[in-house]
Computed example of a mutant assay.
Amino acid sequence: MNPSPPLITADRVALQLAGRQLLRDISVELIQREIVTLIGPNGAGKTTLLRLLLGLTKPTSGTVWRQPGLRIGYMPQRLHIDNSMPMSVQRFLQMGQPGIKTTQAQAALDRVGAGQLLQASLANLSGGEMQRVLLARAASRKPQLLVLDEPTQGVDVGGQSELYQLIATLRDELGCGVLLVSHDLHLVMAATDRVLCLNQHICCHGHPEQVSKDPAYLALFGDTVAPYTHQHNHQHKLSGDIAGECNHSGTKSNGKNREQQ
């Protein structure tokens, strides 16, 4: 039993907009030191549920309780940067957090393996570099809850596996809870404690291996998703190059299911 009170509790939450039912009858509890992954197909309401939990949208019915003074580190699904606006990574990390010193910004980047990017131009970052900078910014708030909306956007498969391992390491270092949004269960299986499968309501939930065999999950994603393993006897460089050998096994999913997601 977790001795600390929940970070966020949602009780029978529903949301209806313009006569359309977006979410219904959702109850969720987020606690410290647990990684919860929210999965579901496009249009399932994943980002909408995030907004409800964070207090950015009010539910039509049900209640959402957040621990008073809860510190949240948020990593958006994507960030659009105006290439004409000169901004360094350091400046970006300090925006909204004027108390952060250069040494603290450097430490935040070092923590996610992107220490060399402090003076780099934000507009010139690769997809993988941008995701690490966004993660560094979210973690620099020393959050009690780290909320990550599709954190592996624009990152190749090997880099995704490494990023999920990094998220688990941050959870251990910060002692925070993690709410992770994804559409791909097989890649996050080794880096999550509990899975919520969403399709306007929670279809199934539990340990990743349990959910992957649940009839509700199989109805959404099919039964062709095989376990995926990624042996790290190498390193993924931020440039995208690989140092050492790389062994992948298993299949991700059939083409039909991937396109539908």
Rank of each mutant, 00 (worst) to 15 (best):
A168I: 07
T169I: 01
T169L: 04
T169S: 11
L170R: 11
R171F: 08
L174F: 14
L174V: 10
L174I: 13
L174T: 09
C176I: 08
G177T: 03
G177N: 07
V178T: 07
L179I: 01
L179V: 04
L179K: 05
L180N: 10
V181I: 15
S182R: 13
S182D: 15
H183V: 06
D184R: 14
D184T: 13
L185G: 05
H186Y: 07
H186G: 05
H186K: 13
V188G: 12
M189G: 00
M189V: 14
A191N: 13
T192L: 04
D193F: 01
V195K: 07
L196M: 11
C197D: 01
C197E: 03
C197N: 06
L198M: 04
L198W: 00
L198A: 03
L198F: 01
L198G: 00
Q200P: 02
Q200W: 01
H201S: 14
C203I: 11
C204P: 05
C204Q: 07
H205Q: 15
H205K: 08
G206F: 07
H207L: 11
P208K: 05
E209M: 05
E209H: 07
E209S: 07
E209I: 06
V211Y: 10
S212W: 07
S212T: 05
A216M: 10
A216P: 04
A216I: 00
Y217P: 02
Y217N: 02
L218F: 00
L218C: 08
A219W: 00
F221D: 02
G222A: 09
G222H: 09
G222Q: 08
D223S: 11
D223M: 01
T224S: 13
T224Q: 14
A226K: 12
A226C: 14
A226W: 05
P227L: 01
Y228T: 06
T229V: 14
T229L: 12
T229Q: 15
H230D: 00
Q231C: 04
Q231S: 02
H232I: 15
H232M: 14
N233L: 11
N233Y: 13
H234V: 04
H234P: 09
Q235H: 15
Q235V: 15
L238A: 09
L238Y: 07
L238Q: 14
S239M: 04
S239D: 12
G240V: 04
G240S: 06
D241M: 09
D241T: 11
D241G: 03
D241K: 10
I242L: 06
A243V: 10
A243H: 04
G244L: 05
G244Y: 00
E245T: 02
E245N: 02
C246P: 03
N247C: 03
